[in-house]
Amino acid sequence: MGLDDLWSKALKKQLLGEVTDEFLETLLKGMDIMFFLSNDYRENIEGFHGKYVFKTADDTVKVSAIFDDGDLTVLEDEISDWDARITFASPKALWSFLFSKNQDILDSLLKNEVEVDGNLNYIYKFGFLAKDIIKRLHLA
């Protein structure tokens, strides 16, 4: 079993809802590997420049993701010049916000568990990138 398979297995588990504290890290790492492995997937971020911050309200998690024309850099810190910032109550809340459908989207709104700041179109773009992995891994 290769490294990619190990990663793929971990990512699949998380994407399917077995969410752990490593969800965000696994997702971003998964995207990074997918950009490397798949030209099609990388095409999504060619020409795209977007800076994201993901954090918890208590600041125990602070991660920045910088997309720069085909490259993704992940930093374990909060950059100040973000285009979009997502503040979430828990990894599960972030998962619900990004992946789940129907009532679950509403749940995250009802519980006020996710707050977004900045340009919403960057959030929508990130949402597509995340869901595109699900499609490519045939998890939908």
């Binding site: 459908k101 919403l120 597509f128 869901k131 499609k135």
Partner: peptide, 16 residues
């Protein structure tokens, strides 16, 4: 229209 971006692969099959 861009609010549909995350749904591009699923909008044909969503329940609502």
């Amino acid at each position: 229209a861009l609010t549909l971006w995350p749904e591009l692969w699923t909008i044909s099959k969503r329940s609502a």
